[in-house]
Design a protein around this nucleic acid. Structure first.
Lengths: 217, 217
DNA sequence: CTAAATTTTTAGACAAGACTAAAAATTAAT
DNA sequence: ATTAATTTTTAGTCTTGTCTAAAAATTTAG
């Protein structure tokens, strides 16, 4: 249907879109480690295929067709991540690269059977929601830890950054999805937090607190 | 490491090699649904990479390095086939196309964990042996059914042709790997056999008998 | 053993996707 | 409101892998 390269651009635009009306050429190039000129070429192609709207010099946005396509790719990526962790004993910092390859395998039956085999999971190992066949997924109420105040209590349910180093840091602190967290103190000077995790107190920097999603009790 | 295209050529040469000293350009082109000129180009590239020896106008043969590479691809292909059948309820005529894609996923850990997850199977769903990490595999004594004589008894342990239509024919006759077979009669005129399978007698043509591997009791 | 048929290779072209360098458009700044 | 800085696009090139058509080599036949 679509080439691997096209799929990777669709995914990048989807992730960069957020609230914005248009995603710029440079943003896409940055995320994909490619050059702006290559992005321009691809945006024209995606527009031809009605997967994106492209406004020269302004940027691009996925069409409904493009969004659906992105959701299918993300569905595959996240289901494969669950598979790798649950069935093949991968750790959560090892799954991304392999899932980047597996997400491009073309077989509707394959992905639906994987879904079934895993018991139709709703979340991937990093707490991100898994779209169903139709592109729908559960939105959960979540707050970035850096928005919390002293005394707030909640559960770690997701990550913003999912880079290897961040995941390894969390492992080192014995923090994983479902871990209970309590805000013990907040330091105005460097915006760091003291939190209680697994019964012990832990200092976390602003950067860390900006990358943890908490569900308040 | 190697491109998907390179891997597909390596696999094709491996499968065509058999006893022959050299596999011809046209044979490769035929098996891969490509043109002879494309094959020539690729053979030069494989020779540059020391994956094949290429003798212009004569053909090519895999080097030891090429054979090892072929075995790794075949290992991946066959393990994925077992996975699809055992874990995801695919039928044996559905697995090939998907495995053709999955065999190119690059991750040593992935394939070793799949192997472990499946309990280190020795045979794929069509009875073909699965090489281990080092490229070694079990060779079993097998005889093509068309070599058997009246009264011979044995077990179906493998197939030569594994095309969809042949697999569906076998399903229709309730024949699968492990099915016990007895030669009831042989007809000199059209070289057809009468065999006893699952307690019932069945006529099979020469073509069928040429594509079944039997292990004699 | 030469001529015909076949196979293989070469030469040149094309498509996808990426890159560089330069031009054009947009945005920011004085 | 011009100039300066930045972003984006265009134009042209490169690589991988493919193709067609023509040339060269090999094999087969008479």
């Amino acid at each position: 249907m679509h080439s691997i390269s096209e799929e990777n651009y669709i995914k990048a635009i989807y992730h960069l879109q957020g609230g914005k009306a248009l995603v710029s050429t440079n943003e896409i190039a940055g995320r994909m480690n490619t050059k702006a000129s290559s992005v321009t070429d691809m945006l024209k192609k995606l527009a031809d295929k009605n997967l994106a709207e492209y406004v020269p010099y302004k940027g691009a946005r996925l069409t409904d067709k493009g969004v659906l396509c992105a959701n299918q790719i993300i569905r595959k990526h996240r289901l494969w991540e669950v598979f790798l962790v649950e069935k093949l004993d991968f750790s959560w910092d090892e799954v991304h690269e392999v899932a980047e390859q597996l997400e491009h395998i073309q077989s509707q039956k394959l992905i639906d059977q994987i879904d079934k085999h895993l018991g139709f999971p709703k979340k991937d190992p990093h707490g991100d929601p898994i779209p169903d066949r139709h592109g729908n997924y559960e939105k959960t109420n979540k707050t970035v830890l850096s928005k919390l105040k002293k005394g707030d209590k909640g559960t770690l349910i997701g990550l913003i950054d999912s880079s290897k180093n961040f995941l390894k840091y969390l492992d080192k602190q014995h923090m994983k999805l479902g871990t209970h967290i309590e805000i013990v103190d907040f330091e105005e000077f460097d915006l760091s937090y003291t939190i209680k995790v697994n019964g012990a107190e832990l200092q976390i920097s602003k950067l860390i607190s900006d990358n943890l999603y908490i569900k308040l009790n």
